[in-house]
Design a protein around this nucleic acid. Structure first.
Lengths: 131, 131
DNA sequence: GAAAGTGTATTATGGAGATTAGTACACTTT
DNA sequence: AAAGTGTACTAATCTCCATAATACACTTTC
């Protein structure tokens, strides 16, 4: 249920938490109404500051991924309103563009990149939307 | 021939330069042996510090994208050794994974994501490897 | 050879963001 | 009442980004 931090990564700790929660949701490893570790619990387990965990949770709530209830805890949103963020499409294109550029330098073809994309989808274990 | 900086972006200036050079190479807008603006020229044109441009160029050379010649200038590599970086594949997978996750929250299907990838490829104007 | 233009190296400085630390508050459950 | 929840606040530290100013080694041009 907990997360891992990559000290070699240059990504901030709170962003790593955000990324992993979203990934687990997309994979179906976290389901609606499921409870996340409390701020203090997670921070002591990861040996990081509670503020850092709180910052991650607050951003996740801003994105509509989770819901926090005072005194009770934080939970995965019932129906993640899948269209909240208008900049989402732009972000997707950006990620794809970077993938294409790196793919160019790796010497792979477009076909191979698509196959790689299929692979990544497989790893998501079909828990996301099928087809 | 010059680059544009996005002040709204949180990406460092030197990374924006790197990204744009690589993108233009992949698009075929920069060809082997073509000369890049000199450090001083580019820095004064972009109104940024020469050191920042230099940092970008040095990282590009480390990746094998460009070659610098003392007293002459910096040029696009003849044959970009397309396999230099072993971490390249991992990077591609990471970009794809992030795209898939955001795609999930955008409510798009796998088919739609692949179509989006095709679109991004189109925008590269077929200057990269065909098929 | 002198001048102008190239990339590079060095040191110092300021600013922004990430993270930690400590404390306090409001709420809910038991 | 006690323990556990998220939250708010201030302060300090650290790292990275970017700037500034200067100097050096090299190449091309005149």
């Amino acid at each position: 249920m907990f997360f891992h931090i990559d000290t070699k990564s240059n990504a901030p700790l709170y962003e790593q938490i955000i990324q992993q929660v979203k990934e687990m949701c997309a994979k179906g490893l976290l389901i609606p109404d499921e409870r996340l570790p409390s701020v203090r619990e997670l921070s002591s387990h990861m040996v990081i500051n509670p503020n850092t965990v709180s910052k991650a949770y607050q951003e996740l709530e801003r994105q509509g991924i989770i819901v926090t209830v005072r005194g009770r805890g934080t939970f995965i949103s019932k129906e993640t309103d899948r269209t909240i963020d208008p900049g989402r499409l732009k972000a997707i294109r950006e990620f794809l563009k970077e993938a294409v550029i790196e793919n160019y330098y790796a010497g792979y073809s477009k076909k191979e990149l698509i196959e790689l994309l299929e692979e990544v989808y497989e790893e998501m274990e079909g828990k996301t939307d099928e087809n």
